[in-house]
Design a protein around this nucleic acid. Structure first.
Lengths: 337, 337
DNA sequence: TTGTATGCGTTATCAC
DNA sequence: GTGATAACGCATACAA
């Protein structure tokens, strides 16, 4: 392996081409400033010979913008956040922005450390997805860098989100329409605003239908397959046994499916199951999962677009994206008694 | 929203504290250079008052290192790469490094554009996972920044990988031991070295067992559930029909499971299925998936550790991590005729 | 123990 | 058309 060498600077190129650094800069950046064709030629040749490529750091320092954006997510391993991230990165790449990834694990201290680091690196903006964005966090970055929040509403901060209350309500209404009266909710973690909103929608729909859900019908748990598995096993003890389970995301629904199978209950004949997110696997579970599609990829794109607007100086309106109930095989009428 | 203001510089702090910028620098960086306690106090107070935080760009420019690493993956949405990324980011974060995410979509031009951008940003190193790392790519970065390759071997470049040939061979041996003779392979994309290695291992195992697989038993397809679904539907036309399917990853296996179900074939009674990766969902499919576990998270960690060693000037040995066959419910003896 | 001066690699603003 | 010069914000060698 060759030694790492000091790379060529604009000065080296200038010397090699027999021109000034200013001229090199103009050529390299395709500036509108006029440069004689012959001179341009010489510069380009020198660039090629020396393998010169500009130092973006120096440029950033001067221009006071880095073309970097930070993205805070609880965990990339979660398919929902992976899609979100993919959407953001696609837009960022189109605009020549680099994306730095930060996994917060929903830990406030970790999140704060990341925000601080991003501040020091003078990133052009931050997207905060999942987890909390507290007053303290906001105070820390206020006026220093643009912020877009994804998945929840924070006063004074542009956001991209879906109406989780309404989405959950529609899912439950669908179950009610199928004839279900005993509907349980496998909620996500209590600390998640998204999880709380979905529970709220669930409660609203049941209330509309004149159903008063006993406390045991709502089980808070982690946003994972294992979380859903355990929550399902817990909630299925309730009597009368629920005939439908609304899980707070697809992975939890997946866990629930397994729990039901182990208990010898058929889906959807004995128990219906609905998930959230419409993760790629949802179409491939057995039975295929009925789920509320959340447009994660699109939300990611939108979040970055808002950030670009914000960077441009304008204050964009919040974006509320539509959700859609995708009916597959895991839901049906309740069993007749 | 407040106006974005020019942030305080080391000069502002110096003025406010009535000292020189050098002194501020020493205090802020916890330099070993002696500073009188009282002076330090004044500086710290000024820092707090002005909300000063150092400009990492300026420091990077001076020190010629950015504490940034780039990561090239085909697609974060793929759970395997998401885990890998998570492993890398965890180690990076521990060492104060920022991770820049790049999705290449396995497109050579896109990959090259990213490498160029990372070069311009003077990142301290790059991890290339998935996709090709060609001679041209190598020439481009050689001696300019450290590179670690994940998942394949490139002469002269440190790498982290598993023995895919051996892993596939063991999976097939297991099927042979169960009594299978008609084993088909749902291969990944032909362009993927990983996919090719797995096919090689498959062929080796069959050869050992004295089986000569007809060409129709290997179907190349995308690394997705949909890819596996279509590949399975194709391969199940073969007569005699295969009694076992080895998929190149879990998502393809998931697709295969669905195809089998649609055809009315039971798993594992009629057809056995094996996946690769041991993605979180593998334990939750129905039936639960037998799969070859690839330690993605650990590979990610290891890759970043190698990069750190490389950055330190040493040339680390390649890391070959172990795989493990995880037997669940999707495999069993072939049906008796 | 503190301060001054220099340079990291660019680009924008002037002058020529 | 082209070049000299001055920042951008910081850390360090050297001077005091």
């Amino acid at each position: 392996m060759r030694e790492v060498v000091r790379s060529a600077t604009i000065w080296d190129v200038a010397r090699a081409a027999g021109v000034s650094p200013a001229t090199v800069s103009r050529v390299v950046n395709g500036s509108s400033h006029p440069v004689r064709a012959q001179t341009r030629e010489r510069v380009l040749r020198a660039v090629a010979e020396l393998g010169y490529y500009p130092n973006h750091l120096a440029r950033s320092l001067l221009r006071r913008e880095t073309a970097v954006v930070g993205v805070l997510v609880p965990d990339v391993s979660n398919p929902y956040y992976a899609s979100l991230l993919r959407g953001m990165e696609d837009v960022a790449h189109q605009h020549g922005l680099a994306v730095v990834l930060c996994n917060t694990d929903r830990r406030p201290t970790k999140q704060r450390a990341y925000l601080r680091a991003l501040l020091e690196r003078r990133v052009d903006g931050v997207v905060v997805a999942g987890g909390a964005f507290t007053r303290a966090d906001e105070a820390m970055v206020a006026g220093r860098m643009p912020v877009v929040v994804v998945g929840r509403h924070v006063a004074g901060v542009p956001s991209v989100r879906v109406d989780n209350v309404e989405a959950a309500r529609q899912a439950c209404r669908y179950l009610v329409a199928l004839g279900h009266r005993h509907i349980a909710c496998l909620a996500g973690p209590r600390s998640s605003p998204t999880a709380r909103d979905r529970v709220r929608g669930y409660r609203a729909a049941l209330q509309e239908a004149g159903i008063v859900p006993p406390a045991a019908w709502v089980v808070w748990s982690a946003f994972t397959a294992s979380g859903g598995y355990h929550a399902a096993r817990t909630v299925l003890w309730a009597r009368p046994r629920p005939t439908a389970l609304v899980a707070a995301n697809d992975q939890m629904a997946l866990g629930a499916l397994r729990a039901l199978r182990e208990l010898g209950l058929r889906v959807p004949e004995d128990v219906s199951v609905i998930g959230f997110d419409d993760t790629p696997v949802a179409a491939y579970t057995v039975p295929a999962l009925t789920t509320v599609a959340i447009p994660a990829y699109e939300m990611g794109r939108k979040a970055l677009e808002l950030l670009l607007v914000l960077r441009g100086g304008a204050r964009p309106p919040d974006a509320v994206l539509p959700t859609e109930l995708v009916v597959r095989e895991s839901t049906g009428p309740p069993p007749v008694l």
